[in-house]
Design a protein around this nucleic acid. Sequence first.
DNA 1: ATCGTCGTCTAGATCGTTCTAGTCGAACCA
DNA 2: TGGTTCGACTAGAACGATCTAGACGACGAT
Lengths: 336, 336
Amino acid sequence: MTELQRRPTLMDVAKAAGVSRALVSIVMRGAPGAAESTRQKVLEAARELGYRADSRARLLRSSRTRLLGLIFSSSQPFHAEIVDAAYAEASARGYEIALSAVAAGRPEARAIETLLDVGAEALIIIAPTLSTEELALHARRVPVVSLLREDVGGLVDSVSSDDYAGIRIAVEHLASLGHRQIAHVDGGTAVSSDQRREAYRAEMLRHGLVPVVVPGGPDEETGMRAGQALQADLPTAVIAFNDRSALGIMESFRAAGISIPADISVLGYDDSHFARLSYVQLSSISQDAPLLAAAAVDRAVDRVEGTLPPGRVVRTPHLVLRKTTGHAGAQKVDQN
Amino acid sequence: MTELQRRPTLMDVAKAAGVSRALVSIVMRGAPGAAESTRQKVLEAARELGYRADSRARLLRSSRTRLLGLIFSSSQPFHAEIVDAAYAEASARGYEIALSAVAAGRPEARAIETLLDVGAEALIIIAPTLSTEELALHARRVPVVSLLREDVGGLVDSVSSDDYAGIRIAVEHLASLGHRQIAHVDGGTAVSSDQRREAYRAEMLRHGLVPVVVPGGPDEETGMRAGQALQADLPTAVIAFNDRSALGIMESFRAAGISIPADISVLGYDDSHFARLSYVQLSSISQDAPLLAAAAVDRAVDRVEGTLPPGRVVRTPHLVLRKTTGHAGAQKVDQN
DNA sequence: ATCGTCGTCTAGATCGTTCTAGTCGAACCA
DNA sequence: TGGTTCGACTAGAACGATCTAGACGACGAT
């Protein structure tokens, strides 16, 4: 049985250093107004006692926590990459990140409350599913940045990837390889699915090609079913909603003996972990998660520190070429 | 430009309801000592104002946050499943969960500090890599529960899955199918790798079989390399360190035209998302993440609320039979 | 000598809660 | 009637930080 020891307070440090609480506070915050010699003395005492400021008390008084709330979905591996990058950027700007996941039985609203309770000064929400009204409601209390979703009303910031441009790049890439029959497996009800589907339709028409949309979803299972549906009238190329979907599509082709990219080219979206696996080597549209995350953190910090109005940041995705796309009607190329 | 509105305080509610702060506090906490009639009156006023208790102030005074800190690794999909389950159990016991990820450039120590700063009353760490000394150091301040790692010293709780039993079940399953040449692709430096490797050796010997360990790792790439190494002298069955490794192994077999389970049986570990995919159907040892998570949360809460000493919880994993294991020397069975 | 200024430091109020120690009035009992 | 008990309520002190206002010496200018 261990005695849980009380954590040292400002007062303890002050006593040890023989100065007042206020001075210790000044030193710990790095604020001006302390002589260099005493500053050292205080820092020494603090280190000795293992002092760390109590963020609750600090916040209570100053309403500054230097804490950013980040909401992600635990079931989306792509979100994990964003989380990583956000940590890095936040710490570069002197902020910490508090995480909250949306999961089965844990809606976004709940995640938001938790973050607000621990004192987050701004909220970054990855692909929020809340209505713009609900988002606006929270945005009145605290800056809110929507990541990977654009149509979020005027009160909340958004940092997103240009879905239209991504799809344009995808269609152009495949068209330039000579493909004329390019299908799209959409993301069903997933965020961004509508935008990408419409962009696909528009871009196909612009190239004088006829768009074929097959209903899909954001995961392997729906991808596989779509892949099977596709086989009834096999196109020469397919653009998947995301990499997981692409994986399912490819699997269905593999089961049917259809070879990639000889018989059909497959293009993913997200450039996720899966796409990079050496035995997958999926060509994919990269949204550049680290950059997006950094941009979102930057906006959040800027909003917190300054008084600039909400705005939009849109980044253009780019193509990452691997081995699942090739010339239309090409002979089989070594796939591995 | 939105004016960020001040959130209402106890005092505001008190004024509105015409009572004292203290009484509002009593009502909001659901503590005894308020007449039913005034209780209603106060609740009404609070709802009207949209009052939510400021958790920082509350905590500052009461030193209770009802907040559990959970540390996971953003790169491990298996951890995500645990996070989900932990949320459910925590909320059932009236606690909230604060998440903190370890990622590249963000060590465990950092994650721990963040959680302590936001006021976590206990720490649950998934597969901690800290030394037992460092863990003990934190355990002096706050209850610490180690999840999926057992050798953590006497001061910290541990909730883990019985690796030995898991491997025993794996070997027994394969042996009962008539396999005599059963290889093991280990997890390299990953947590639990040593335990499973040694369990494998012991169990093989117990069955009078000769153990063959191939060095591997916790992901697809290392699994694939191990699979290639395996092909020099192909066994009839292989036990992978985890599902991701198994995926890599199977991929290497597929590339070489070795069919599963006709030519070789493959058994995974974790029963993760991947294993359940309809086109994978990987037989796997399940550690039952939801149960483990619930047990960890329970211990954390018990430690926080009571004064019981640190202890160990060990759960026995079980076999989930799918389509990648079959009789030794069996003819090819329909794999899909 | 007096005054203002500057750098360093401190006392005390304050943030929004909870907790302790009451006060107050009504009911009960002898 | 007077005392005790009890339920409902409140005043004021915490909690651990930050912030404001001002004290104190030293120094330079008048």
